[in-house]
Nucleic acid binder design. Structure first.
Length: 946
RNA sequence: GCCCGGAUGGCGGAAUUGGCAGACGCGAUGGAUUCAAAAUCCAUUGUCCGAAAGGGCGUGUGGGUUCAAGUCCCACUCCGGGCACCA
């Protein structure tokens, strides 16, 4: 049994840490210590206990990717990034910056709705409870957030502006000439002035109101369109491409997703393809994230080529023309057949009644007629999910019975339907060049088609299709040209004969923006009697969700139509409005926005969370976003998980660019610097049935692990509920305190690396704080042991070296090495007899303050300071103390260290060489051997080659 | 298949430009203290040979450049991530 009476009364333990931490958290809250002043508008007040000149200082805007407030609360993995940004923010506050750092909650979304479906509790109630719990957990961590600026995307005052931005996007169009978004009213003026022609050439004024609305709708950046979408019956909603996994299932819930045409809200993100790509160069992001964005956008340059099919006519009665996209127009002479996707609109027109002469048996799929073959093939592929279509890479297809004409050599080539060509990319049709394309080669072999090489492979080439560089062969006027030259020549030839042109294709599709769910922002749109969408006036925002008894979407089958829950609020679905042509009854849009909407712009509301007349005060926006130097502008540091590489970060950049074009923000990019923090992983344990057991109950002895007396297997994975290995911060607060948790998480390794959690190692960080504490406070009496005594010279040097190293490490976010340096300094301090010199203490406490703010504040106040350590100046190293008069340098023989000597730090090469050769140990080792060369690096080392 | 990362003691990880590999911590071992334990303090801790002094070998593998390589070059293995019939 423990006997607390024997414990020193004033030891730094969990109980004392708890007392110190909660006390300072209350004080900071009362003083508004982390209140960050804006230059104008709302929130110009700074902290009552901080410097008065904060808003005159250079700014720094630091952000975390805000969390979704889940019902289970935080585990110790979540705050890793939050602690990093907090340490950095605190360091920057102490080195002369006005730092904006706060936290919000991304609170709309599916889980709250699923929870509501299970419990009958309204999503809002549940969401608010979760936010309260998460806010408590985060506050207890001592994060220096300006809580006046905290937002939740579900706040009325917040989503009012999400809806406003939607209206801005809806009421804008993309001017291709200027490559920017402009207000739709300017387009209307162009039409009205005759500066732009209508589709059928009629003057604008002759169009009916409905026709005008329909015309403008074609241009809007947010538009309704009938397009193939990802229909997820399991969730009862449609999803964006980005929300569908490679396996063809929903990102959330893992339900199957089906492609089918539906009328849906889209956002014209594709208009911004080039700018989204080009502006990546402005950003200080990792190459891997930039690469992921580039791959997702998937821009590729090539050409359209038209292949006529003289025997067929299209829907307009014209000679059928198959337009293909190719990145290799130089290989056109090698096109021996064509393939169109099973969903291609020309399939029916091209499919003939009977097999033409020359059709090989293998082309027919065993069917009597092309009609039968194509129908059977389309039937079969339509039933395959995307997953199966990708898994089975064996080439299948059937001949349509038609031949197309190769525009460069008039060759007649057969047209196939095959599912290896996808309708969703390019034109949904290809010219097949088996000689230079592996997939075409496979198909050509399977279907006994001609193969013509049009690029000369190297002599030692042994593969099938050759996709490398080389001279053109078998290609008429291109022969002898290298690939790039041949491409250019072919394109100009195609333009000349009117059979093609250069073009650019992207994988990026317009963003599907509607969800048939309840817990999201209602779309601020109404429809007139002709079904034209119109935005509701800004002064009627926010548009609130109707109160419903039954929020849940229906789980439906594949062939069903989505049923938006908002449609059940019958009173809500219609509204009387005057939109300029008198009071009329309109139908509301019944969709809600996707979860990504609220997170697209939250940084702007952090800047100015209170304004009700503007999205963010213009002066403050320019100040915090760095609008004075737009190309360098944006949030100074944004930290979050890599899982948002293409979703949130692409959408957010898109919205920001629209707002930039419309003049609402001053920088072209929202996030200047991005860091992806690693994940905290944990050990997990499975029993003999393979079921996870509670990791905290597993006992280790002699390298073996047991749970409840039975042996278990150790595994390793992302910390969480499913692996039963979550450790909560609340447990850590109780056993060690928040400062220890902060210190441990920062000490575990570099910020961007995954790392395993080990509760047993946390004690190391606790010990460091205890050892520092003992150098400041007598554990028995609680008396301060800091005294105004002189600092020994060697200690002073160590102190200034530590200051120098820690300053650099903090600036580079290398908190693990900063902590190591502080530990070394403290170890030296421990060895010192007598009290800790005041001069050392006054440097050391501010130095640790960013990492362990409560601990440092407590020592700071005990040392008699009358202002908060939060705004204390970070110590500055004295350069004179960083250099030594004498240094120890290694002497190497052939690169191996053999001896060491002390030598004057500024000794020249000759002196060093002489000193090295004079060393007795070296003389003995060299003996009489000839010295061939001596390399001297002044102040560093001597290497003797003997 | 393609594109990014990465591999250093029993473990987490250090090592600006090529210049003393293993900082700092965890764990482990021994000691001091204690009736005993916890806590604390001190010492040792890459590996092999050796009683020691000392020496050999060592940063995934194989080669190379260099006075000198964890760091640069070539080839490969394994692990993590992203994309994937994208024409």
């Amino acid at each position: 049994m423990t006997q607390p009476t024997e414990m020193p009364q004033h030891r730094y333990d969990a109980a004392l840490a708890d007392e110190i931490e909660t006390r300072w958290q209350e004080t900071w809250k009362a003083q508004g210590t982390y209140h960050t002043p804006n230059p104008s508008g709302s929130l110009t007040e700074g902290p009552s206990d901080g410097p008065a000149d904060l808003s005159d200082r250079p700014k720094l805007f630091i952000m975390d990717m805000f969390p979704y407030p889940s019902g289970t609360g935080l585990h110790v993995g979540h705050p890793l990034g939050f602690i990093s940004t907090d340490v950095y923010a605190r360091f920057k506050r102490m080195t002369g910056f006005n730092v904006l750092h706060t936290m919000g909650y991304d609170a709309f979304g599916l889980p709250a709705e699923e929870h509501a479906r299970q419990t009958g509790v309204h999503p809002r109630e549940n969401t608010e409870a979760n936010i309260a719990n998460m806010a408590r957990q985060l506050h207890r961590l001592g994060l220096g957030h300006d809580d006046r600026r905290s937002i939740a995307t579900t706040d009325e005052a917040y989503y009012r502006w999400t809806q406003w931005i939607f209206s801005q996007i809806f009421n804008a169009w993309f001017d291709e000439d200027q490559q920017k978004a402009r207000p739709i009213s300017e387009l209307e003026t162009e039409f009205a002035d005759g500066g732009r022609e209508t589709a059928d050439g009629r003057p604008w004024a002759d169009l009916s109101l409905s026709e005008q609305r329909a015309t403008l709708h074609e241009y809007r950046l947010a538009y309704v369109s009938e397009a193939p979408v990802n229909w997820c019956p399991g969730l009862g909603t449609v999803l964006a491409n980005e929300e569908v996994t490679a396996e063809g299932r929903s990102d959330r819930g893992n339900f199957p997703v089906f492609r089918r045409p539906l009328k849906q809200w889209m956002m014209r993100i594709t208009a911004y393809t080039d700018r989204l790509l080009a502006d990546l160069d402005l950003l200080d992001w990792t190459d891997s994230i930039k690469t992921m964005q580039r791959n997702w956008i998937g821009r590729s340059e090539g050409a359209h080529v038209d292949f006529r099919v003289p025997t067929a006519t299209d829907a307009d009665g014209e000679v059928a023309n198959i337009r293909v996209f190719t990145t290799r127009p130089d290989t056109l002479f090698g096109a021996t057949y064509m393939v169109i996707a099973p969903e291609h609109p020309l399939v029916e027109a091209l499919t003939t009644d009977a097999w033409p002469e020359g059709a090989k048996d293998v082309w027919t799929g065993g069917a009597e007629t092309p009609q039968a073959a194509v129908n059977a093939y389309r039937e079969r592929t339509s039933q395959l999910s995307d997953l199966n279509r990708q898994e089975n890479k064996e080439k299948t297809g059937v001949f349509t019975g038609s031949y197309a004409v190769n525009p460069v050599n008039d060759a007649s080539i057969p047209v196939f339907v095959a599912d290896y060509v996808l309708m969703g990319y390019g034109t949904g049709a290809i010219m097949a060049v088996p000689g230079q394309d592996e997939r075409d080669w496979e198909f050509a072999e399977a279907f006994d088609l001609d193969i013509i090489r049009t690029v000369q492979p190297p002599n030692d080439f042994e593969g099938d299709a050759y996709i490398g560089a080389g001279a053109a062969i078998n290609s008429g006027f291109l022969d002898g040209m290298e690939v790039d030259e041949a491409k250019a020549a072919m394109i100009s030839h195609l333009v000349e004969i009117g059979a093609g042109e250069s073009t650019i294709t992207t994988k990026l599709r317009d963003w599907l923006f509607a969800r048939q769910r309840y817990w999201g922002e209602p779309i601020p749109i109404v429809f007139d009697d002709d079904g034209n969408p119109l935005s509701i006036p800004d002064d009627q925002l926010p548009l609130n969700l109707p109160e419903l008894i039954d929020w849940a979407p229906r789980t439906l089958d594949e062939d069903s139509e989505p049923e938006p829950p908002l449609g059940r609020a019958t009173e809500w679905t219609t509204v009387d409005l005057d939109l300029g042509d008198g009071m009329k009854t309109y139908k509301r849009d019944l969709n809600v926005m996707p979860q990504w909407a609220g997170s697209c712009w939250y940084y702007l509301r952090y800047i100015d969370p209170l304004s009700s007349d503007v999205v963010a005060d213009a002066t403050s926006e320019k100040y915090w976003m760095g609008g004075d130097n737009p190309s360098e502008g944006g949030v100074d540091l944004y930290v979050g998980g890599v899982e948002h590489a293409v979703l949130h970060l692409l959408y957010s950049r898109f919205w920001h660019k629209v707002l930039f074009d419309l003049g609402h923000v001053t920088t072209p990019e929202p996030f200047k610097r991005l860091i992806n923090q690693g994940y905290i992983q944990g050990y997990a344990f499975t029993d003999d049935r393979g079921m996870y057991v509670e990791a905290s109950e597993v006992v280790e002895s002699d390298g073996a692990f047991t749970h409840d007396g039975k042996p278990v297997n150790r595994e390793y994975g992302k910390m969480g509920k499913s692996l039963k290995n979550a450790v909560t911060p609340d447990d850590m607060y109780r056993d060690y305190g928040a400062d220890t948790l902060r210190l441990y998480e920062m000490f575990m390794g570099p910020i961007d690396q995954d790392r395993p959690w080990e509760t047993k190692s946390v004690v190391g960080s606790m010990r460091l704080l205890q050892r520092i504490w003992r150098n400041f406070v007598d554990e028995g009496t609680g008396e301060l042991t800091v005294a105004d005594v002189p600092v020994p010279e060697d200690v002073n040097k160590i102190l200034h070296r530590t200051i120098d190293a820690v300053t650099n490490d903090m600036a580079n976010l290398s908190f693990n090495t900063a902590i190591a340096r502080i530990t070394e300094l403290n170890n030296d301090l421990t060895k010192l007899d007598g009290p800790t010199p005041t001069a050392v203490a006054e440097a050391m406490v501010p130095m640790i303050a960013p990492l362990v703010p409560h601990f440092a504040e407590e020592l700071w106040q005990r040392m008699g300071m009358d202002t908060s350590v939060v705004y204390a100046e970070f110590p500055v190293a004295d350069p004179a103390l960083l250099v030594d008069d004498e240094v120890e340098i290694p002497i190497q023989i052939k690169g191996k260290v053999k001896s060491r000597i002390m030598i004057s730090a500024d000794a020249d090469e000759a002196t060093m060489e002489a000193a090295a050769l004079a060393d007795p140990k070296i003389q003995e080792l060299i003996g009489g051997a000839e010295i061939r060369k001596v390399i001297v690096i002044p102040g560093k080392l001597v290497n003797i080659v003997a």
